[in-house]
């Protein structure tokens, strides 16, 4: 069942079309990866869906109803997200961060993302990979129906990446969470995504399961170049 649907998303900056008529859908329980070279418009696309960037044109729907207004309003409708540069509350401890996000809900998220032992540490003291983990916990603490993740595994070792993505994939299936993520690490993308969207210069140029994307000639040409999926 389609949970998140965007159609005709468009955004220009000073005459340059950063995102140009993008349509996409994510079903509940599905993990979708968005890839593309630097500057392809991935982060802008996330901003348009999350409300951080105002759209020139296009529509976002959540569970069939229009998703619009401020980022806060979209978040309250069930959209959770993380950012390319992780955003946490630097002046608070890890557990205080989670308490703010969870607003009194009971949660074992810290343990699940592997920060159980760091609960009392100031967030500002965490290593970058741990900050990404904390941010993920914060995003999940609001019990979203759709989760956007901008490079969730940046700053982590390969083993940690697999672990984290497995966790998210599990959560997605378990809670019928729709996940849309961007990622540079192609192992992560091809290993965990149910479906892959390829963006180039603001336009969606391909969409399909990993094997279809691997075989797509246009993708190879504009993005992978030499055809080696592992970067």
């Amino acid at each position: 069942m389609t949970l998140l649907a965007a159609s005709g998303l468009t955004k220009s900056y000073g005459g340059v079309r950063a995102v140009d008529g993008v349509d996409l859908e994510v079903a509940s329980g599905e993990m979708v990866a968005m890839i593309g070279p630097n500057g392809a418009g991935k982060s802008t696309c996330f901003g348009l869906i999350g409300g951080q960037v105002s759209a020139d044109a296009g529509k976002v729907r959540l569970d069939g109803a229009d998703l619009d207004g401020s980022p806060a309003r979209r978040a309250r409708r069930g959209l959770g997200r993380t950012f390319q540069v992780a955003q946490v509350f630097a002046s608070m401890s890890v557990s205080e961060n989670l308490a703010v996000a969870a607003r009194g809900r009971d949660t074992t998220l810290l343990e699940r993302v592997g920060l159980g032992a760091d609960a009392q540490r100031p967030a500002a003291d965490l290593a970058y990979g741990d900050i990404k983990r904390l941010e993920l916990a914060l995003a999940l603490a609001t019990e979203p129906r759709v989760l956007l993740m901008d490079e969730p595994t940046a700053g982590m070792a390969p083993a940690e990446r697999r672990q984290l993505m497995t966790l998210i994939a599990g959560l997605a299936r378990e809670t019928k969470l729709a996940v849309l993520f961007t990622e540079h690490d192609m192992d992560v993308v091809f290993g965990h995504a149910d479906r892959i969207l390829v963006l180039d210069r603001g336009k969606l140029i391909a969409s399909g399961d990993p094997s279809a994307i691997r075989a797509n000639a246009r993708v190879r040409e504009v993005y992978l170049g030499h055809g080696d999926g592992s970067c």
Binding site: Q52, R73, F83, V88, V100
Partner: peptide, 18 residues
Amino acid sequence: YAIRAARDSQLRAEALGF
């Protein structure tokens, strides 16, 4: 805490629905 959260990171606070 919510007010402090808004100070620490407006993006994060908004993305959490504040």
